[in-house]
Write a protein that binds this DNA or RNA. Sequence first.
DNA 1: TATATACTTGAGCGATCACTCAAGAAACCC
DNA 2: GGGTTTCTTGAGTGATCGCTCAAGTATATA
Lengths: 192, 192
Amino acid sequence: MLMPRKPTYDRDALIAKAKDIFWRQGWAGTSLKDLERELKLKPGSFYAAFGSKDALYALTMESYTQEGVARLKALAEKLGPKEALKAQPRLVIEAPKTPAKACMLAKTYAELKAKDHDLADQAAHHMAEMKECFADLFRKAQDAGEIGAGHDPDRLAARYQSDILGLRLSAEREDVDALEIAADIASDIDRL
Amino acid sequence: MLMPRKPTYDRDALIAKAKDIFWRQGWAGTSLKDLERELKLKPGSFYAAFGSKDALYALTMESYTQEGVARLKALAEKLGPKEALKAQPRLVIEAPKTPAKACMLAKTYAELKAKDHDLADQAAHHMAEMKECFADLFRKAQDAGEIGAGHDPDRLAARYQSDILGLRLSAEREDVDALEIAADIASDIDRL
DNA sequence: TATATACTTGAGCGATCACTCAAGAAACCC
DNA sequence: GGGTTTCTTGAGTGATCGCTCAAGTATATA
């Protein structure tokens, strides 16, 4: 039995790179040519590595969600649930090296839902995952007595996520002061 | 001087039809074939009538914005500024015959901004127009003493519009009760 | 009715789409 | 080093993209 050459590329690094491109340009807005150029992969290697454009897109959404969840949980570990929820809006629009302000999952869902594309379902699933994280934090904040016990954490999470999605889209506009909106979202949490 | 045959189609009706398709499917998601089939126009007639896909898209955004502004102003005429702002979230997601819940301008902006496409600038301009409408209503509500005088109407408008954009995107999801979010947005206005 | 003019039609343009595959290059075990 | 296997390469696939244009058709005036 023989073990010949291994790939010269770092698969995870390529996924991270592809995520940036897809996030910025969307699904239809990103061509194989774009990916081949940025990932420095010829078509044959690309398809050997990932199978298809859609398969790679799915991997990037997976990575995007996993990172988002991890970042939020780390923040809650550091600040506590309520302060994490208050800090998140500002952090998300101030993150310096992201390819876009708007949420990649929301962009994907909006672009592909009408086509009944599998990637739209996957984006929806990942958004539900994020929403459950928010609900967890609201629950923990309630348990800690940081916010009133009278609220439904799932409802708070849905509203919060909706606000964040709006905020992140607003943050791409030049005629909107997204920091003000982020501050207002944070102060809403103090009123719970 | 001679005046030969007139077009057999109703131009405004075609724009309305195209608006539904673009709104639902987006810019890249709508092909000339789609438009030709739905508008029952052969390529030659299409280009004689509208010049290009992008030109027609611009016309549909114009119409979309004009209708939105008119609907909001009529609502304010009927209910007064504060009640109009409170009613708008629910009405926008309950509108029965729209091709999508999400805002067409936001979808267009999100899809095309990274490309620096002209249509993204136009979408941004129309969103600013809508935001100014919201600010007007907040100003009028303040003048009428319906909400506190301490708030900046432009800031309220930016937050309100951001919330609406999030709400409308959330309304496309199956795991979110958008009516609850709409109610929460409306009740926020009562706290001003 | 003859004629001028605009509208309608649809084949087809070059470009680009996602993707394939056969051939050459490189790295591993023996 | 020889042999084997996988990776890399890039020309090329058919399909579809937005769009053009010449020919045919219908409608107006004269």
